[in-house]
Design a protein around this nucleic acid. Sequence first.
DNA 1: TCTTATTTTAGTCCAATGGACAACTTATAG
DNA 2: CTATAAGTTGTCCATTGGACTAAAATAAGA
Lengths: 231, 231
Amino acid sequence: MTKQNEATILDSITIDCVIFGFNQGTLEVLLVKHADGISKDKWGLPGGWIFTDESTDAAANRLLLELTGIKDVYLEQLRAFSEPDRFPLSRVITVGYYALIKKEDWTGLKPGATASEVGWFKVSEVETLIYDHLHILGVGLRRLRRRIKQEPIGFNLLPEKFTLLQLMHLYEEILGYEMDKPNFRRKILRMNLLTALDEKQKDVSHRAAKLYKFNPDTYQKLIEKGFNFEF
Amino acid sequence: MTKQNEATILDSITIDCVIFGFNQGTLEVLLVKHADGISKDKWGLPGGWIFTDESTDAAANRLLLELTGIKDVYLEQLRAFSEPDRFPLSRVITVGYYALIKKEDWTGLKPGATASEVGWFKVSEVETLIYDHLHILGVGLRRLRRRIKQEPIGFNLLPEKFTLLQLMHLYEEILGYEMDKPNFRRKILRMNLLTALDEKQKDVSHRAAKLYKFNPDTYQKLIEKGFNFEF
DNA sequence: TCTTATTTTAGTCCAATGGACAACTTATAG
DNA sequence: CTATAAGTTGTCCATTGGACTAAAATAAGA
């Protein structure tokens, strides 16, 4: 986190991003190991500075693209984190974001990224991070838990095509409790948000589950009719 | 909005606050008229600078105390607003807050406040504000609508003692639709959040309604048992 | 072809809830 | 005494959520 161009970068404000991914039934977060500075060799959230001519939203999107090479990511601001002593060297306020990415799109660190090392970690196993990043992660997780019950954003963590059971496992992992399979099916299908595909799972040693995809357009139309997603 | 002390105030970050009040069945917001500068004589949200040794939460609380003289106000951060051109003279990011105050506590502008004029306006009738303040107000209103369904925060807008019908009217006004009296009573009383008082309304030309108060301690205990407020 | 695994799918049961509605009771000011 | 508007009780019904049972389907592998 070194400033590259004093003239075009905002002083004393940064962004930090909680990037969630879902892999084999567990919720993961992308962390970076700092290459130098006072937090050398310690893990933290990916972050960066904000150009004077861009919004924080734009800065967060740029960071995400730089770091992952992925465009059009689900991204939402958490809030500003501003404790005076949160950053030990100077007074820096950070604007936190969280992002949901499909791990299938992740092809490894983009060449030329500044961090010395990046890695995916199980959210439940992250215990220490630099500065107040553990706190920001916690806020991000709570926000995700709340949002996923009110808006169909979970699909951003799954591949384009998924089975209902995968979706249920996603909910179970994030919310932290188990669900009933038949009831889950009924409830989610009743909403008419999913399109059943003519495809099935492959390479499984049991009856292959049908694949579905989430239909954002349908969702929009339902919203306009007053539909209220709720889980 | 002029800087008073270059040395102890953060550059390029401000706070702005949407202060809601409830008066005779309508939701109101506190606005200030700027005394000078490019937005002289125009209405906007109350805002201010942040000291280098305080968090934005602390700054918002300080602002509220300076402006209203009221302590212990319900206050929640909305988020950072950061469009590069939101403030015409320079690049300023603002952290938005919204607050709920009991209008009975409001005794007029605190002497010595900087704004030339302050006033309460019906939220539904506010049409123009300086900078992006109308946008911030909108975000605040949406947040209030969402929160009031999930957490018992509406009481912060009512007097200490209130009738069930007053509470219902508060919900109706904020959410924008009418409710059924008997059903509302049943639902809210079933939650056991309210303590019935031995007092009644006075000076009404009909049967006086019983007064209730909200009990935060009871709420806390219920939360710990897994209770989930929902309206 | 048979077995095994696990999903898909259909269906039941019950308690709780929300919404709509009717109607009666009470108390207060004037 | 009366008009007023709140309090209060209760019914009805459609919907939902949760718990549970169990049968049918199908893909891989032996």
